[in-house]
Amino acid sequence: MVKTAGQSLSLKEVLRTSVGVMGENSRGLTEKVVLSKCRLYTVKRFWKVIVRKSEFGRRVERLAQVCNKCDYLVPITAYLYAKRIKLVVLDFYPMGSLADLLSGGRRQTALNWNERLRIIDSITRAVAFIHGQSPPTEKSMKMNVHGNIKSSNIMINNDLTARLSDYEFVQLADCIEDSESKERSRTTNNIYSEDLSQKSDVFNLESIKEGDSTFFEFHAKGKERKQAFKVLEIALASTNTLPETRPSIEQILLKLSKLFNTSK
């Protein structure tokens, strides 16, 4: 195990201390583990890494540096590149993801509008920080694009602010899809964009609100209802089929900042 933030772990320790699978997708497996000082961490195991060992390490180290500079990105603690297992260790969030909250899996009461707006604001700031990275490219790796924004990668803090996870993981590992999952993606109404670009980041960020009907399932009236419609308008503009017509993340952040200030 290579250190990234003062943490040195062995493969045996990571595998032995797993306490449960949190999720699985075509890119890998997410587990909860208990490591040093009984602290919980999240481990992301990749099925198909697309770079060699030295390049994998260089990329993760660089991503960790960027994440540690932003309060809205999930910190990377450590990583491992072994013959059969490649993984990244991240901070653990007991509240789970936005997908968990919207499905009712981690909280008995539904999120109110101000809480939803706080989460939107946090993640928009995370994307703005990523898009502002300079230089935009470092040794064939795009630094100013996230590449995989979705509700399951939005982790929730106890105060209901949020952090964005899996920054640039699409440039570490490929997806592995079987024929069944490919057919399911083809036949379902999936509006997720896989292009590695800032305009696709904007599309995927806003499609969380537009495409996930549960995001707007809450009781609201008066000012909150007007704010919700304005957020939906931003989402509709950002998911236009023509990328060049979508607003930049800075434009979105400016509009949301005005809404966020009026909600206080």
Rank of each mutant, 00 (worst) to 15 (best):
Y41P: 00
V145M: 11
S257Q: 14
E13M: 08
R107P: 01
L15Q: 12
M143Q: 12
S179P: 03
V202P: 09
H131P: 09
E31G: 06
R163Q: 13
N144Y: 05
V89M: 09
D159Q: 04
S197Q: 09
L80V: 11
K53N: 00
F169S: 15
G105V: 10
T4Y: 07
K37W: 00
N153G: 13
S103Y: 07
L87D: 05
V19L: 05
E61K: 07
N190Q: 14
S103K: 15
A126K: 08
F203T: 05
L256G: 02
G211L: 06
T241Q: 13
K142F: 09
L117W: 02
N261C: 03
V51T: 04
K209E: 00
K86R: 15
V49S: 10
S238K: 06
N190E: 12
R58V: 00
C38F: 05
Y79W: 11
F229L: 14
F56P: 04
I176V: 15
Q65C: 03
V43L: 06
Y192Q: 11
I85L: 12
S263W: 00
T239M: 13
Y93S: 08
E61Y: 01
T109S: 14
A235M: 10
L111I: 08
R225Y: 08
L80W: 02
K37H: 12
I156Y: 02
L196C: 12
A128T: 09
A64Q: 07
A220N: 01
R39F: 01
K226N: 10
S248L: 03
L259Y: 04
L160E: 03
V60D: 01
R186P: 01
L236K: 15
S165N: 14
R116Q: 10
V66M: 11
D195A: 15
D159Y: 06
L90A: 06
T42M: 01
G96A: 07
R58D: 04
K209L: 13
G96K: 08
T4E: 03
Q171I: 15
Q65F: 02
L87Q: 08
A220V: 12
L102N: 12
V88A: 10
V51Q: 01
S185T: 09
L259A: 09
A82M: 07
C38M: 09
I123Q: 03
G105R: 11
Q171M: 14
E168N: 15
E55D: 06
R59T: 02
N189C: 15
R186N: 11
E24I: 06
A162F: 02
K264H: 03
I120R: 00
V60Q: 01
A173W: 06
K223G: 03
C70L: 04
T245F: 07
L29M: 11
T245P: 00
G211N: 14
L35S: 05
F229K: 14
K12R: 13
S103T: 09
V19W: 00
V89L: 11
A5N: 12
A128R: 13
E217D: 13
N25W: 04
R16C: 06
M155H: 03
R116E: 05
R106N: 13
T245M: 09
V2T: 01
K209Q: 03
E24D: 04
I76R: 02
F46E: 07
Y79F: 06
I156R: 05
E244K: 11
L29C: 10
A162V: 04
G132H: 00
G105Y: 11
F215S: 05
